[in-house]
Design a protein around this nucleic acid. Sequence first.
DNA 1: AAATCAAACAGAAACGTTTCGGTCTCTGAG
DNA 2: CTCAGAGACCGAAACGTTTCTGTTTGATTT
Lengths: 340, 340
Amino acid sequence: MIFTAATMKDIAKRTGLGLATISSYFNGGNVREKNRIKIEEAIEELHYEVNEVARGLKTNATKTIGVVIPELNNVFCSEIITGMEDILRSHGYATIICDCRTDRTLEKEAVDFLTRKRVDGIVNMPVDITGSHLTEFQDKGRPVVLIDRKIQGMECDSVLVDNQKAAHDAVELLLKNGHRNIGIVCGPRDVFTARERMKGYYAAHEETGIAVRESLIYHGDYTIQSGARALETLVDRNKDMTAVFVTNYEMTMGAVIGLNELGISIPGQMSVIGFDNLQFARACSPKLTIVSQPTQEIGREVARILLKHLEDGETAITTEKLQTEMIMGRSVVKYGGIYE
Amino acid sequence: MIFTAATMKDIAKRTGLGLATISSYFNGGNVREKNRIKIEEAIEELHYEVNEVARGLKTNATKTIGVVIPELNNVFCSEIITGMEDILRSHGYATIICDCRTDRTLEKEAVDFLTRKRVDGIVNMPVDITGSHLTEFQDKGRPVVLIDRKIQGMECDSVLVDNQKAAHDAVELLLKNGHRNIGIVCGPRDVFTARERMKGYYAAHEETGIAVRESLIYHGDYTIQSGARALETLVDRNKDMTAVFVTNYEMTMGAVIGLNELGISIPGQMSVIGFDNLQFARACSPKLTIVSQPTQEIGREVARILLKHLEDGETAITTEKLQTEMIMGRSVVKYGGIYE
DNA sequence: AAATCAAACAGAAACGTTTCGGTCTCTGAG
DNA sequence: CTCAGAGACCGAAACGTTTCTGTTTGATTT
């Protein structure tokens, strides 16, 4: 059966009304009661559905948002997207996802791809601290929202997490428990959030009047492998290390593996504070104490900001900073050297 | 600066060529060398980019694929999507993701949403074994590909995993190690894959001539909580249970938590075979033996099937069945009762 | 009952492509 | 040098909306 979908023209013919009236009906305009009924009957009978592509051509808006992230296969990212997509979809917006595999070139390609697809806005969790891959899109007057990380010299909305405070509080907890040689497994030096977390590490030490020893700092690359390697290295370099703070999920997992393989018990020989993924933290034995980020809330906030631009014509630029939460497990104990 | 993007008309004017020629250039048609150069110069100067929305209106194809999954925030799903999106994007297709939170109503809504968005094809990992949410879309002559689960009475392409064999092999390994009272933590009764895995469990027992005891079977709901509860229940009901096979990632994590809390050691008191997520398996101590699904490959295969329909006009329906792999850890040992 | 005026309606043009006929331009054979 | 014939090219129409510019309608006022 050859079947061409009904168009507004068909509805107009069927109801005897003009095209403009039908269009007005669909766009919230006023239509006389009896005509409204006629239109709705026609829609029912013809199974009419508005063609969003045609509408998009005319209105120059696709009701589509592009998302560029370093790794979809990463709880932090996927949870944010879930929260965001939920709200966007309920407002009629589709979400196109591009995983750029933490690669700058692929990231640029993804943005260009989305630009060609004529998305109404782009959400990006940037691979690194620099980059001008978004300026061309932004110059078209379309909104860009950055997640989690800022880009130098880029003026746009962003939704961040107070990473400095998060790291500060975690390290402070360890210090308050009497630990004095606290290792940190941090992200790459050129990542915005990694820097922020380092700042918190330093600040907590400073407040307590304790000097930071360089050998206790390890810069990983956010992979499980590097988490495991980090612990091996740190333990080897610092025989007196009694606590460690790991700053993302994958490296936390790696750190747990590493400690297991080194035969170092948590928390008996090493207190541990991890990051992200409550599920994993609860699966560990004993339960891991972690810094938990408000991923769903980040996603929702991003969606809200986008909608404010696209639906309400808002032009002001916002920077939102959300707070983390410390989930207490049983992986931190008082330092034996002092209290025993 | 007011700025309207260049159109094909501008290129035509600039080069002195006709619209049809420009269009032909962009669609792989033949254009005389000197004209080709002129066109390319004009594109460069005007920063022209083809408007895919207008093209979509005319060709009735959006170069967009919709994906409906039960939970994006789930490694199995996100890994499949990563593999798929990669290939699709390299062929110019965008991927719209809809997370339906394992809810039938939301699943139907998502499909309708994507239909309105006029996607060229839909990929769906169905919430349950029934449902006609896809027939309307399919009746428009557009391709549907199911992942991981089949739907009763639905004729369409699907990419599955040989779950029966996977479960069979896992249970067989436990049997070969002398275990006779093997628990299974399975998914809901109305999920296709859960049934397949149960079949494998029965088959392995049958081959070894061992009767299955009902009390060793637990139907969970794929959450961590149900995994933990499952182990509590199974251990409570079967004091002689020495091994357990858990059939998805979340429940595997739950099972590990549950065993930890019950004070039952792996593998000393309980041999365990888990499912999915190699990363988690390696983080456990000792490393978990797991059944690993070829997620990336599933995604790629789905993409290939879609492209064959959309680009090559293929009409035949395929059902692909991929094999799992058993990753050996140290969580399975010979049954003490026999070998000690 | 006529006049007034806003609200509701109508039709055509436009959005930027593809495609269908038909026309022109090269190339090479005679 | 001419002339087919193929290949390249052209312009208009169409895709299904929205929107602009008027026109009609009907309730309200006088």
